[in-house]
Design a protein around this nucleic acid. Structure first.
Lengths: 241, 241
DNA sequence: TTATTATATTGGGTCGGTCCAATTTCAAGA
DNA sequence: TCTTGAAATTGGACCGACCCAATATAATAA
């Protein structure tokens, strides 16, 4: 559990919202909240600002703070409190058993584009692996990943068959918690049709991205081809910033 | 131009980064920045926190603040400083001439799901319109939109043929600046193949979402089917929050 | 009753301070 | 030379204050 004040406020307010403590969709003003929680207004502001970014509430100067009615519908987006970017973990919560089948595992010389994306110099090598991911034994995603050997010298096919990110965290003491994603779609190619059990008219969703360590080091470049029925990305966009 | 301190700091720091003032990828520490800019450390923290959320920089306690090397590559994501959620505007910057063809424009009785999404009571009506959007006269997107009549009583087919959001802003004095998006992909249906000039094996990208006014009122429910070649969504995800 | 105007409410931005935790730096010791 | 550990550096959290801007409410005037 979080021991930070503003995080505790967030948890508490979320519970209150779920409980229906604000039937008019309106939260108490910041000054009252500060008083009731015995914290400074700054901390309340921080909590509310955070919740606003997540789309849980709307703030309007002069008027007050209001619950996003969509939040009460308990849409999937709001329920997702991802603690890990690893696919293994994010799907576990869904009640389905994830599986991994390693299709290939090599060490290769990256081409220029890949070197660019991972900020490598000429002469540095990367692990290249392709994995098929399953949910309840049904394949839904082909993942191609590249990781610089210097960042994970002990990486092995066995590690790849489990969770790479868990390995990084527990063995290397580093954390992958930021990613720059590009999302698109394409017709399925032969490989996709075969591995993901798709017809020619059925497409794949593409999630391509660079995963970063805490300190900003690019750790992995990954291309994920998803069966279109499993391809869904939720996002709350706020242009006031 | 922004007259807020932290926004000016952001602009300034971005310029310095672009200019290459930090050859070691490292920004000055917060206390020095505060002194040099003659502002409080709080404002610096706010600016840096904001830039961190945007993925421009990485902060690491005890170590310092560093430029995301990806930012220097000037990837499309970082260059997009969208001031409007309207598609018309966001593509304009790309140098291409956007066009709109209204396929239908009606007033209908929303079904339950739509009422749910727009938070309407039984008996309230919505405008329903379908538009084909073009870039340099090439169709790339079919958009189906629903707007409660009570929120935009004067909406007309003519308005729909231009920019709805511009109309809202200039005529109604309201602003649409938040949206909850769900992104997915599907095989193209007959309509898509015809209007977007797709073959049977070519898919469409789906962007479905609710657009909100400043005060949290759901303003429009929209489903956008995009030609897969024009379908691209960039996103920077930070799990530390 | 209605329209206008003053007042109170409410979130926004900024300041400058305190203490803390993660990391780096560097000097002392083996 | 290498290791250990103290000290300095640096970002993180929090406080409580100030004034401002947008909005809502109540009082006033037409």
């Amino acid at each position: 559990m979080a021991d930070l004040i503003y995080q505790k406020i967030i948890e508490s307010l979320k519970k209150e919202i779920d409980k229906g403590s604000f039937p008019d969709m309106r939260l108490p003003d910041e000054r009252s909240l500060a008083e009731n929680y015995h914290v400074s207004r700054s901390s309340i502001k921080r909590a509310l600002g955070n919740m606003s970014e997540q789309g849980i509430i709307f703030k309007k100067r002069g008027a007050g703070t209001f619950v996003n009615p969509l939040y009460l519908k308990q849409d999937s987006y709001f329920n997702y409190s991802g603690k890990n970017l690893g696919i293994t973990d994010s799907f576990k919560a869904n009640g389905q058993k994830p599986g991994i089948k390693v299709l290939s595992f090599d060490v290769i010389r990256p081409d220029e584009e890949l070197r660019d994306n991972l900020f490598l110099n000429k002469g540095e090598f990367v692990y290249a692996f392709k994995r098929l991911r399953l949910l309840d034994d049904v394949p839904f995603m082909i993942e191609t990943g590249y990781i610089p050997i210097k960042l994970a010298p002990e990486l092995s096919e066995k590690v790849a068959s489990e969770s790479v990110f868990n390995y990084v965290e527990s063995e290397l003491g580093k954390e992958v918690n930021k990613t720059y994603l590009t999302i698109s779609a394409q017709p399925s190619d032969e490989e996709g049709q075969k591995l993901l059990n798709l017809t020619k008219t059925e497409p794949v969703g593409i999630m391509e991205g660079i995963f970063f360590l805490n300190d900003g080091t690019p750790f992995e470049f990954s291309t994920m081809k998803l069966h279109y029925k499993y391809f869904k990305y939720d996002s709350f966009v706020d242009l006031d910033r």
